[in-house]
Design a protein around this nucleic acid. Structure first.
Length: 855
RNA sequence: GCCGAAGUGGCGGAACUGGUAGACGCGCCGGAUUCAAAAUCCGGUUCUGGCAACAGAGUGCGAGUUCGAUUCUCGCCUUCGGCACCA
């Protein structure tokens, strides 16, 4: 055993012991309560970044804590291995995506191991393993048979840089989420999953996830976007191709205020007119092309053209013009709206621009027609100018107008969701092949179970452009499983969100060879604690909730939600620095900057270390390649050891908040670990003495700390305050070590070891042994609070006069109210403030304070 | 625009149920140790006044409820995050 703290040796020894004893393996045969702790698995991009380290450390602390509670813990790790970066690397470096991916995995696995993360590595898999993806192919064929997966032609978001289709969720501000390219609209044949079928259940389920952050639930609620309204059909007067136009509205109460109808550029009605009119065709083409490009323009002008078609109002019989307009979305509702300019701001702006009539039919607050000269009046209120419906409020008018339209057969109530079916086809190579055979005779035929998996060929050359699968004739050619005639394979692959939607369940059934999941998945799921970034609040978490239900309905699981408790960790930030190079900002890595501080110690600037050149501080921003401010975890571990890195990350901020990287903060964490180490060395080298007079005081601190740290880690998940409490306790040990006695110090140091074991496991392991214990600290039981150590004989109370702190008194625990109040009144300083005044009220908060109200 | 989260010392943060604001750490200041430095240890550190005891002010701003408000209510301001022509 070394006297000086040597993290490399300590960490290697601790990990060797854990590996030899198999303490990290999940054992479902143990009779103990089960606990499934999971961190979002990484994409194997090459090496870990600090965001990964934070994510996995948080989850590891929770897993280790739960193990020490005696639970059987499942804490697995794997790889979200399919995806575009592998193809990009293949193009750049001429290496096959499979090889690139597997090399990255090998490196990152070692990095994870160097952090001391307590994974059950026997369950590891990568989603590009055929043993994994065969089962999602199987599930997909089941979904096709059930009608929950289907193929249709659809206008899709086309990313012209990545040459692929994007899900709506992958389009951010009109740009591809990875490439940043402006997205175009194209129509191709796509496979879809009918997530809309589950929209209501996914929405309702959010109410039963009390341990998810409210922010995430709100985002999902908004994403699903449930609206109650009506479908209304307007008969079209002068169109040979169609006899009515259907719209969706949430405001049927404003039906009498409709002055025109508007359709999207992609709407069949607009398209049919475009066939015979060049100006309309041109306008529509412009809208379709520009729709996404213009979406990021803050103030898009309302534009449109009259189609020359006329519709009849279903109740008044009035004739209304039909326009094509750029503000109507093809992807929502029916792609057509009834326009009520008096009561809808968009309709109002459009009417202003084209001088269309505005007719108010909802009374303002004064009961009169509202003023709509400057803006639409969008509140609800009693109806006016609406025939028999005048005077009805929103709810009554909704029902009455619905009934009237239903009677005419011109409308009905309808629930509309913003959520659309999930397009899962990708025209990419490095993904899971969609298990479909296209037969000229039988159509789309799912690959039969006995022919699964459809292997993805791995010896390919990726050149960019179209997927290599499209030109691999040997691979594509196949006999139709139904009729035996020559057919071809589907060459599209799944969206990679497909793989990450069910991996948590497969970890529980790792190695299962004859089914997607086995009974162990029922045992372990739902995941008790899921940890990951807030950036997955909508996409991944919504798809996983959807898949869990699909697997449930397939009889594989018996719960409805995949993740019981969700922790979304904050970003990792670091100082960013720049200098001006020919009028352009060049970002300087923080380790090349020497800080300058003012006399308060505040950072006032910095210079480039090698040249002394001034550089400007650009603030604390998320660590990123573009800002060149990433801190390499591997370098930090090499310099300080994994435990110091873990401690700093857990101590610097609560897990949900963003974390500001600080070199001096890391030094502080390192200082604490070494101090703890030295304290134990000095303690075991000292001579056992009998109890000293400070024994009770130290024991009280120790057991208060056990209570607080247990609650902070287990319930509150405020690891930073748990660490602070242990630091405080060790400060007390230092102060009382001479007077508290050897045995009490031993008890305190053992408690510190156990309480810190989830956070700095290697150091805790070494010190646990040094304190005279055998075996892994991982399996040592969590310390228990000795209630008798918490008792005190006197209490310190604060005395306030009129709410202001004026003194402190020390009273026996058993002192009666009157005795306490007397002591408060007799405090020297308090007397100065109550002297000569009348005490109007005396408030005693037991164990806390006395407040004397004087006047 | 809508939704969500947050504003506390020089900095990261603490104060959990309305009850001592600033725990713990960083930084800074002073001291010890050292030939010296590193490392380590001890003390101080919200601001203002005072040698001190102590007093006054203080949790984004303005009101309110209360014996008492960082915490609750109302109205603003700012920052960050998400969604965004969703009919």
């Amino acid at each position: 055993m070394h006297d000086t703290y040597n993290p490399t040796a300590i960490e290697a020894a601790a990990r060797a012991l854990w590996d030899a004893t198999g303490v990290d393996a999940a054992d479902e045969t143990r009779s103990a309560e089960h606990y499934y702790c999971l961190a979002m698995f990484p994409y194997p991009s090459g090496k870990l970044h600090m965001g990964h380290v934070r994510n996995y450390t948080i989850a590891d602390v929770i897993a280790r804590f739960q193990r020490m509670q005696g639970r059987a813990v499942l804490h697995p790790m794997g790889w979200d291995a399919f995806g575009l970066p592998a193809e990009n690397a293949a193009i750049q470096h001429g290496v096959a995506p499979a090889q690139w991916t597997r090399e990255n995995i090998a490196h990152m696995r070692e990095q994870l191991k160097s952090l001391g993360l307590s994974y059950d590595w026997s369950r590891e898999f990568a989603t590009c393993d055929p043993d994994y993806y065969r089962w999602e192919q199987w599930l997909f064929t089941r979904l096709v048979e059930k009608g929950l997966a289907y193929r249709k032609n659809a206008i899709v978001n086309w990313d012209p840089i990545d040459n692929t289709v994007l899900a709506n969720e992958q389009v951010i501000d009109g740009r591809g989420w990875r490439s940043g390219a402006l997205v175009e609209q194209r129509e191709i044949s796509q496979w879809f999953l009918r997530i809309s079928e589950y929209a209501d259940e996914l929405l309702e389920g959010l109410d039963h996830l009390p341990e998810w952050p409210e922010a995430v639930r709100t985002m999902q609620r908004n994403w699903i976007g449930k609206s109650r309204g009506m479908s209304i059909r307007f008969p079209v007067e002068n169109c040979p191709a169609c006899d009515e136009l259907e719209v969706f509205t949430t405001r049927p109460d404003t039906l009498f205020g409709v002055t025109y109808l508007a359709v999207a550029a992609g709407h069949p009605l607009a398209q049919s007119v475009a066939e015979r009119r060049e100006d309309i065709a041109q306008f529509c083409a412009e809208c379709l092309r520009g729709s996404t490009a213009a979406a990021d323009l803050e103030t898009q002008e309302k534009r449109g053209m009259p189609l020359g078609l006329l519709a009849r109002h279903p109740l008044t019989g009035d004739i209304l013009p039909i326009w094509v307009a750029n503000f109507v979305l093809m992807g929502y509702g029916t792609g057509a709206v009834m326009s009520v300019p008096a009561h809808d701001q968009r309709d109002w702006e459009f009417a202003q621009a084209y001088d269309l009539p505005i007719r108010a039919v909802i009374a303002g607050p004064d009961g009169e027609a509202p003023d709509v000269r400057d803006a639409a009046f969008t509140d609800t209120g009693p109806l006016i100018r609406s025939d028999d419906f005048d005077g009805l409020d929103f709810t009554a008018a909704f029902s009455a107008i619905r009934d009237a339209l239903e009677e005419e057969g011109l409308g009905e109530e309808r629930i509309q969701y913003r959520l659309r079916d999930w397009g899962v086809s990708r025209q990419r190579y490095w993904g899971c092949p969609i298990p479909i055979i296209r037969c000229g005779h039988c159509g789309d035929v799912p690959v039969p179970e006995e022919q699964l998996p459809v292997h993805l060929p791995e010896d390919v050359i990726v050149t960019g452009g179209a997927s290599p699968l499209t030109t691999m004739d040997d691979w594509k050619a196949v006999d139709c499983p139904r009729c035996g005639r020559a057919a071809t394979r589907e060459t599209d692959t799944f969206d990679t969100f497909f793989e990450s939607s069910w991996y948590y369940a497969r970890f529980a059934s790792a190695g299962c060879a004859d089914a997607m999941l086995d009974d162990r998945a029922r045992q372990w799921t739902p995941v008790d604690q899921y940890v990951g970034g807030i950036e997955h609040a909508i996409l991944h978490l919504l798809y996983a909730r959807f898949f869990h239900r699909l697997m449930r309905d397939e009889g594989l699981l018996d719960s409805s939600e995949p993740f019981t408790r969700l922790l979304t960790q904050g970003m990792v930030l670091a100082d960013s620095w720049s200098r001006d190079v020919d009028g352009r900002k060049e970002w300087i890595a923080p380790d090349r900057v020497t800080l300058e501080r003012d006399d308060k110690g505040r950072i006032s600037g910095g210079t480039l270390t090698e040249t002394g050149e001034l550089v400007s501080h650009e603030g604390m921003v998320k660590m990123s390649k573009s800002k060149n401010n990433g801190i390499d975890p591997e370098a930090m571990i090499a310099r300080y050891g994994a435990d110091t890195v873990r401690l700093f990350i857990m101590f610097a901020a609560p897990p949900e908040a963003s974390l500001e990287w600080s070199d001096t903060g890391v030094e502080g964490a390192s200082r604490f670990v070494r101090r703890f180490w030295r304290m134990v060395q000095e303690h075991v080298a000292s001579r056992p003495e009998p109890h000293g007079p400070a024994r009770d005081e130290l024991r009280r601190k120790v057991h208060e700390t056990i209570a607080k740290a247990t609650d902070d880690i287990g319930r509150r998940q405020t690891f930073n305050t748990a660490i602070a409490a242990v630091m405080e306790m060790l400060n007390t040990v230092t102060a009382l070590r001479e007077t508290a006695g050897y045995e009490t110090v031993q008890e305190a140091l053992e408690a510190a070891c156990l309480l810190l074991a989830p956070i700095i496991p290697h150091t805790a392991q070494a010190l646990w042994e040094r304190l005279g214990h055998d075996g892994p600290v991982v399996t040592a039981p969590w310390p228990q609070v000795d209630e008798s150590a918490l008792t005190v004989s006197t209490l310190e109370l604060v005395v306030q006069v009129n709410g202001k702190l004026r003194g402190r008194i020390s009273v026996p625990v058993e002192a009666a109210r009157d005795a306490v109040l007397t002591a408060a009144r007799e405090d020297e300083n308090v007397m100065r403030f109550i002297d000569g005044k009348t005490i109007r009220k005396e408030i005693l908060v037991p164990g806390k304070l006395v407040n004397l109200v004087v006047g």
